[in-house]
Simulated assay, not measured.
Amino acid sequence: MTVSLSSVLSSYGYNSTSTTKTDASAAVTAAMAKLAKAESATTTQSTSGTQVSISAAALAAANAKEDNEKDSSVLLKEVRAALDAQYAGGTAKGSADLGDLSGRALAIVALNKDGQFSAAESRAAKAALREDTRQSFVSAMGSGDAYSMMANYSKQLAAQYDSMSPEERQARGWSEQFRDTNADFATNFAMPSLFDQI
């Protein structure tokens, strides 16, 4: 995984023309920590001594699976501690970075059932879930004919629903009926392949 220092610095609000020396130093420190974390997270050492790269998507899937298996109260405490660490470390300027949170972690922040998160944090988590849905749709609609794209996307939504935690389903507003409707559409409107038509 390649992450540029300038992109990480800009994510921490660093601007060479308007940032003070103190802010620049804090931004560099935070960026270097993030880069180090990204490198260590995406490269592991195998028993043979060779390095094995793990894609960001694979890491995200592993994090989501791990978070889905945790008790919700444990995950809530972990997320609260992670956000507090960002504020304490000065890496959060106005709002925390929710980019590394799993869908379930975002849902717990968005639902905020126990009142452990601020209104701003809850809004940011809801926005992140909406953006994830939007990106998923844009990606699915990238190429091919409209019917097959919609059928594939509907199939993807049904599979996503099946793998989601109850909290994430609730935060996204996805019901069992939503899942069934998408599964039915994927089955009934999938275009036959060229092989089937021969």
Rank of each mutant, 00 (worst) to 15 (best):
K93P: 01
A171C: 02
E39Y: 10
A31Q: 03
D184R: 15
Q197E: 10
T187L: 11
D71T: 07
L9C: 00
A81T: 15
M1I: 10
G115N: 07
Q116G: 12
A26Q: 10
A88P: 05
K70V: 05
L101M: 12
A146L: 13
V52Y: 06
T29K: 10
I108C: 02
L59F: 00
F195Y: 11
A171D: 01
D67H: 08
A186W: 07
A30Q: 02
Q116P: 04
F117Q: 03
S154M: 07
R123D: 15
A183T: 12
A64M: 05
N188P: 01
W174P: 02
K155W: 11
E78L: 09
D184Y: 10
R130M: 09
A41V: 04
S10L: 00
E176T: 13
A125P: 02
K126D: 08
V74D: 13
A38G: 10
F117T: 04
S46G: 14
T91D: 00
A107K: 01
A151I: 05
G144C: 08
R172T: 04
F185Y: 15
L59P: 00
T2Q: 09
T42D: 08
D84P: 01
T2M: 06
F189P: 03
A26K: 12
G115K: 07
A171V: 01
V109R: 02
F178H: 12
S136V: 03
P166E: 09
T133R: 15
F185W: 11
S143H: 14
T22G: 04
D67P: 01
R134S: 14
K155I: 07
Y161Q: 08
A128V: 03
A146W: 11
G144Q: 08
V3L: 07
G90C: 03
S73G: 07
D145W: 04
F117E: 02
K65T: 15
A183D: 14
K155Y: 13
D162F: 02
I198E: 10
F117D: 02
S72I: 12
R130C: 07
A30S: 14
A158K: 08
A127V: 09
I198D: 09
R179K: 15
A171S: 03
Q197G: 12
S4I: 00
N15D: 06
S55C: 02
L111I: 08
